[in-house]
Amino acid sequence: MSVETDKIEIAFEQLVDIQNTIDTVLKVPKNPGHIGVRDMLRIIIGPQTDSDQEKLSEISSNFLARRQFKALLKSQTLASQTKQAAASSKTTSGQVRRSGDDFDLNLIPSTGDDKLFYMQLKVKNHERFAQISKAEMLFVESKGVFSSVPLPEILDGVSQIMIRQGHPVLDAFHDPEAEFFIK
């Protein structure tokens, strides 16, 4: 009787081992870097978190995610500045302007020796002035890479942010192919 019990236990353990092996083989590993639509929408609509830039980098490195994010961004954006026909224009005072239908972007270097730039967003679309003035985030896509920066309150149609040299938004400013979105 005891021999039969041992055999049954061994057979049971073998069955459990086989079951575990099958589960392990068949289990589809979950992509740890996967970003769902809900996450993408949260990055666009808010609330913003510290990990958003990291997630934007992950989105930028994934072709499908990039397309999906851009489509979502276009559907949610308050206004955008599409690709430029030519590079941005520079004035004698060193200011650089990037013009669009809904808003202009002006880049003004600080006079201090600290590689700081002031970027001003000036709302141009008077018919949607109030609506556009509610924008809180500036997104940019340049060379397939997304970046974002929070916008301070738009007062009298102008919002001003400070960016250091080397910031991706600054590089995108000089790229005629870059597209800017505000939300």
Binding site: S110, G112, Q160
Partner: peptide
């Protein structure tokens, strides 16, 4: 800590040192 004269086209700003973040009193 410092006062910098800037381009007249910019809006004057108060920054927390080394952060380049505009403080809420900037407006």
């Amino acid at each position: 800590l410092s006062i910098t004269r800037e381009d007249p086209d910019i809006r004057s700003v108060v920054c927390l040192n080394d952060s380049f973040q505009a403080l809420p009193i900037s407006n």
